[in-house]
Amino acid sequence: MSQITTQEYWRWPEYRYTVPEKDWHNAKILTAGIDIGSVGSKAAVMLDGELYAYAVIRTGGVSEETAIKVTKWALEGTDLEIEKIHQVVGTGYGRVNVPFANRTITEIACHARGAHYVYGPTVRTVLDIGGQDCKAIRCDERGKVLSFLMNDKCAAGTGRGLEVFADLVGIPIQDLGKVSLQVEKEPQPVSNTCVVFAKAEALALLRQGWSKEKVAAAYHAAMADRITDLLTRVGVSKDFVITGGVSKNDGIVQRLSRLLNVKPLSPKIDPILAGAIGAALFAKALQEKHLGLR
């Protein structure tokens, strides 16, 4: 399978990896987490709660097939088969379509649990900004969700809002964040948070002779304001992490850090995998329960 790259930066190249020094034959508990998202699907295979193999692919038309494909690809080159895995947990939007899953868990719970693995156990707030929605999750020291909020009503504050703006100013979406930071002084945020109106407002500013950088700054500032607004409802506690495609946009990340007065942690593993890893950790808990260990 070849690697695919795309212009839309919150979609990912397809890839797989096996941790070389690990041997599954020595493991007591073999688990997998399968995260079927609307755009990408991920599989994480864990040995006694340690990451062993994973894969990320584009979600196809039939979720069941995608689930099998991503899991088989994760296991490629190993002699481990799906049937030998003790427990499998499905998560994400297509979680009910994982044919070999023993249970389903929401992506919110898996994201929080996975963020603990990816960033470390000090994580208390997870902000996930994807292409279509924005989730704010607060969790405890074990990665258990204390409070969450999901916004999918409005595109402002999601990757889609950025896409609209990138088209408008003709700047490649992956450069947008950087461009928005190339201003000497931060302008007033655009006053409208709704994408449709914000677009009109940005257009008007461009006509008034504002530079693209300045308009980009005003637009990013408005997005960061909006996301901050949402976050204050669930509360922000340290440590704080930003996941999802928009976490790659520095213009948003730096402004959010300033507004919230927190510095996001850096991940040890691609945070795209957080949901699948969380699911595999829930699968481990399931197996421990099954064995009477908890």
Partner: peptide, 16 residues
């Protein structure tokens, strides 16, 4: 766990 369902818009916060 507290699950917030709803949204926030220009006119206010609407969450159950």
């Amino acid at each position: 766990m507290k699950a917030h369902y709803g949204y926030k818009d220009g006119s206010g916060d609407y969450f159950i």
